[in-house]
Design a protein around this nucleic acid. Sequence first.
DNA 1: CCGGGCGATGTGTACGTTCACATCTTCCGG
DNA 2: CCGGAAGATGTGAACGTACACATCGCCCGG
Lengths: 363, 363
Amino acid sequence: MSSSEQARAPESPSVAVPASFEPPVAAAEPERVKAPNIRDVARVAGVSYQTVSRALNDSPSIRPETLARVQAAIDELGYRPNQAARALVTSRSRTIGVLAAQTVHYGPATSIQAIETAAREAGYRLSITNIASSEYASIKSALDHLMAQSIEALIVIAPQVRVFEALKDLQLAVPFVTLEATGTNTAHALWVDQIQGARLATRHLIDLGHTEIMHLSGPQDWIEAEARMQGFLRELGDADLRTRAPILGDWTAHFGYYAGLELLRYRDFTAVFCGNDQMALGFMHACRESGLSVPGDMSIVGFDDIPEAAHFAPPLTTVRQNFAEIGRRTIEVLLGELRGETGLSHEPVQPELIVRQSTARLA
Amino acid sequence: MSSSEQARAPESPSVAVPASFEPPVAAAEPERVKAPNIRDVARVAGVSYQTVSRALNDSPSIRPETLARVQAAIDELGYRPNQAARALVTSRSRTIGVLAAQTVHYGPATSIQAIETAAREAGYRLSITNIASSEYASIKSALDHLMAQSIEALIVIAPQVRVFEALKDLQLAVPFVTLEATGTNTAHALWVDQIQGARLATRHLIDLGHTEIMHLSGPQDWIEAEARMQGFLRELGDADLRTRAPILGDWTAHFGYYAGLELLRYRDFTAVFCGNDQMALGFMHACRESGLSVPGDMSIVGFDDIPEAAHFAPPLTTVRQNFAEIGRRTIEVLLGELRGETGLSHEPVQPELIVRQSTARLA
DNA sequence: CCGGGCGATGTGTACGTTCACATCTTCCGG
DNA sequence: CCGGAAGATGTGAACGTACACATCGCCCGG
């Protein structure tokens, strides 16, 4: 086995051939037929290549019967337009770049899926690149990779704070949109109104009579984490309640759990607003282990409304974001900008509070 | 506050203007400078364009100092090679297609992320396409979209049963790999040994003394669901235990919940092996509502080990799959095949049973 | 001192498509 | 019945790159 492996030196015609005859080997693809091109189609259809091109780009000035002949030739040959050639001559790549982080999370994943679908329908393809870490170098590298593909637009679903710096460096010549941002950068942002969502969650707790409310935030450099924190603090401020320093987490259930274990050593709060559902899950776990009942002793609100949230123990009160809607709107805005339209509606998508069983009136 | 919110209408300069004057509008990019090409670089560096090409493709026969001059010119002009032109002339797109479904799920998402990273390192880009439904038309459309991009290889992360049919139709000329399949199609599959994983889970329950074990399966047309079911049935058979018809679900927590409510009306089983963690979560929810304690009255095993599983109530015993490893191996195999190597190792990745607190010895 | 060979660099061409413009056809009004 | 416009189709060029081959300069051995 391993000796036959060595003999494989591809196409070294002579070598030390103990393997006497060496059969033609060409067993692979014998007929590497060139893919048909526009001229082949033209020949079959009995027209010029330009006419085929017109047929492909549904030009108005082509006779229906000519079009039919071309179409028949295309089908017969199984012709597919060469995107590379097309991109070269039109200098339009028909590619939208996506700079993502944390694509395994429900929110980004859902948005990306909606974006992909909408983009495909509009004849665009997506090029998704994940950043390994939120270090500047990693972001720059991902951005370089995207720019190398001459993307026509950019969508950012990542810790935008640092990304913005990187974007400034490469003087970006394409329209871009960042998802899930706050209102700080309205020109390029398309976002769920995170602040409003956080306010809804916080007000819900306040309405239930809670006055000592904790906040588990997302990572500092995620703008949406920042926004949720802002909403939380503002709502608390409006109600003249004592504000306590939010805990900076990393979105994971693990963090929620360990933070919970730590915080629950001092039971000086009765409710917690978590930056996302995963952290809420971890926090609930910590409550259980600490002997606290949810919502009896502790009310918990999450954010995102991942599909699992309805089945947590107890089912989680949370803020729903319409990620799919965001995705669709993103492509809409971007395509509009590519068409040269401007002043498109960047109105925030409104989140919705979903009340389940993890919150209760303060005893 | 809310009034200032309204005032935000971003950059609508005047509005109600009867559109009489319509300013030149060309406010967009005034200087649409053409991107520099290989000849521009050559001119600046004082060499021929071919020398620049050599520098870009690190040809061996170029003097270090010439290379340096070219590099300097590249930096000065901010030159980026045009991928379309390169693809056109080499007839290599350097694109790997991914046919995906359910990318919001943890497993696929994790694999895709690993695939993307590995592909990028190898100089390939990914083109991901989601299928809207598992109908044939939808699969075909997605596959067409990918083939139109002249992908060099295809990765399938979707209900493979139907995809295989579609693949047969378009006589696919590129190497492809399907993820998370069973061992039925070893030539093209690279997979976690799902059968073995299911056996581990089932044996664990048997070892705990359970004899009446239920299985909540994934959708029928997902090969991995089929494989897990097979593993379950075989292990049960080996132990001479009564087998009961698995329930066919859809991977969601919702399904696990409603199926649980239904099944628990007859308490003729003491353990359940769920096809994934989400369904296990839903099932646990149903147990709670039915007044059953987990693991006191009901032992539950999941599959996947999503990060949240450790924080379920109780923490879930499950089968861990190394999705990232799968992703890396996928690219490895594919790149090997593109290089013409063959007979690469398609050894299955071994899953691992993670015992937590959702299973207990039968009283 | 010359010729061969090799390393370094330059020139021509092709990839498949679209754009700009030229040409051919058709039809209609004067 | 003819001129011209509009519609339909064809021809030449260009996009930016890599490959094949040609050329140049240099070093070394005879």
